Structures are given as C-alpha cells and as structure tokens.
Simulated assay, not measured.
Amino acid sequence: MSPYLAVNIGGAELWLLAEKAVYWPAERALLVADVHFGKAAVYRALGQPVPHGTTAANLAALDRLLARYGVDELIFLGDFLHGPAAQGSATLGALGAWRTRHPALRITLVRGNHDLRAGDPPAALGIQVCAEPLLRGPLALRHEPAPHPTHAVLAGHVHPVYLLRGRGRQRLRLPCFQVGQQVTLLPAFGAFTGGYALARKAGVQLVLVGDEGVWCLPS
C-alpha cells in the first residue's frame, strides 16, 4: 500500500494522498475539499453534544502535509467554513494563529454551497476567494461535481466513501477518491464531515483511503 497514487487527469500528473488531499507537483499546489471549519461549533450552538478539537485536528493535518510536500499554494475546493456560527472567535482565532505560521503560503478558496451561507473568510486570513470554476492549466477546480466543456474537473461536495463488506454484518466505511473521465471527486478533508456511500460503476475508478495509504478498488 502506498502513501499516494499518481494519476493523470486531463494531462496533469496528480498525487492522490492518503491524507484525503491531492498534490499537484508541477504547480506545487495542495488541494483539499470540504474542510468545514467550525462545523462542531455550529452544532454545539444548536445544543448538540459533538466533539471538541476538530478545527485543531484539521489544521494539524494541513501542517503535516505542508511540511511533507513542496507547497506554494493551498487550494480549498469549497466549504471552507460550515456556517455563520463558524465565524466565531474560537474558530477564527485558531485559523488566524495558523495563518501566521504560514505567511508566504498562497491560499485560494473556490466557494462552495456552505461558503455562500457562512460568508467569505475575514480578509485578515489573506485568502483569495473566487466563484467556481477556477481554471488552472487543463483542470477546472470546482466545488459542485459538474462537468466542464473543455477542462477535466476536480470537485468536492459529495464527501465520497465506500463500504467494504466482510463476513456477516462486518462493514468498513472508508473515504475514497472517485476518478472519472470528466469529473474526479475528492473525499472530505474535514475530521467531522460524514460521507456519502458510492457504488462501483463502469468508467470510474475508486481509490480507497486507509490508515496506511491508498489503493485502487479492483474493477
């Protein structure tokens, strides 16, 4: 099992990482989808008993990736903040402290549906925000998984997972990439995001994410 799988999408070599992210070596860019910063805070504001520390866990995961790969730009494929309550002082304070540790890093956010409700991140975070699609080389970077007429699409939104079935009622729910001819889906990067179970279908490759690495599901 490998820590990443190199694939060719639209003529671009991309690495599908076990950390539920994509590294684009030629652009020195790291792409993640559906972090949903502040989601736990949103649920706690509604009186739901949900875990603490998810923002810190997500930022620590980003730190490990930035330290491991040569990254000049971090691109969020939508749903950076979960909702208006994520604009609270605790979440934004953690994000601000993290940003000060990476002052030279270019950060781009392609707005997703949750970003439209939550509002753009504060200007102090130094994040360039744009509507989808963001065209980069042969790729169209989006949140919604809709095909593009001229570019291969990388998208999020779906939070794809696959159910591995064992004996009896044993099941293992794993995040996955879905690599298609027109649209490639990224798994949700966030630690508190849930997932939508995908089925195998012709012309699509599922790449499963486990604790030790990634691997292609046999056709």
Results as ranks from 00 to 15, higher is better:
Pro3Trp: 05
Tyr4Asn: 12
Tyr4Ala: 13
Asn8Ala: 14
Gly10Lys: 12
Gly10Val: 06
Gly11Tyr: 12
Glu13Asp: 12
Trp15Gln: 14
Ala21Phe: 03
Val22Glu: 02
Ala26Gln: 15
Arg28Glu: 15
Leu30Gln: 07
Val32Ala: 04
Val35Thr: 15
His36Val: 11
Phe37Asn: 09
Ala41Ser: 15
Tyr43Met: 09
Tyr43Arg: 05
Gln48Pro: 01
Pro49His: 02
Val50Ala: 01
Val50Gln: 03
Thr54Tyr: 00
Ala57Glu: 11
Ala60His: 12
Ala60Glu: 08
Ala61Tyr: 03
Ala61Pro: 09
Leu62Glu: 00
Leu62Gly: 00
Arg64Ile: 06
Leu66Asp: 07
Tyr69Leu: 14
Gly70Leu: 06
Glu73Ala: 09
Leu74Trp: 05
Ile75Asn: 04
Phe76Met: 06
Leu77Thr: 13
Leu77Ala: 06
Gly78Gln: 04
Asp79Phe: 08
Asp79Asn: 10
Gly83Ala: 14
Gly83Glu: 03
Pro84Gly: 05
Ala85Glu: 07
Ala85His: 09
Gly93Arg: 11
Leu95Met: 08
Gly96Arg: 12
Gly96Ser: 11
Arg99Thr: 12
Thr100Tyr: 00
Pro103Trp: 11
Ala104His: 15
Ile107Glu: 01
Leu109Gly: 11
Asn113Thr: 09
His114Phe: 05
His114Val: 04
Leu116Trp: 08
Ala118Ser: 09
Ala118Pro: 06
Asp120Ile: 08
Pro121His: 10
Pro122Thr: 04
Ala123Trp: 03
Gly126Ala: 00
Gln128Lys: 13
Cys130Ser: 11
Ala131Val: 10
Pro133Asp: 01
Arg136Asp: 05
Arg136Tyr: 03
Arg136Ser: 10
Arg136Ala: 10
Leu139Glu: 03
Leu139Cys: 07
Leu139Arg: 10
Ala140Asn: 11
Ala140Cys: 09
Leu141Arg: 11
Ala146Ser: 15
His148Tyr: 02
Pro149His: 04
Pro149Glu: 02
His151Pro: 13
Ala152Phe: 00
Leu154Lys: 13
Gly156Ile: 12
His157Gly: 06
Pro160Phe: 11
Val161Lys: 11
Tyr162Met: 03
Arg165His: 12
Arg165Gly: 06
Arg165Asp: 01
Gly166Met: 01
Gly166Asp: 01
Arg171Asp: 01
Arg173Asp: 09
Arg173Met: 14
Leu174Asn: 05
Gln178Met: 12
Gly180Met: 03
Gln181Thr: 14
Leu186Met: 02
Pro187Glu: 05
Phe189His: 06
Phe189Gly: 04
Ala191Gln: 13
Phe192Gly: 02
Phe192Arg: 14
Thr193Cys: 10
Leu198Ala: 12
Ala199Ser: 15
Arg200Leu: 14
Lys201Leu: 11
Lys201Ser: 14
Gly203Tyr: 01
Leu208Trp: 07
Gly213His: 06
Gly213Thr: 07
Val214Lys: 01
Trp215Pro: 10
Cys216Thr: 15
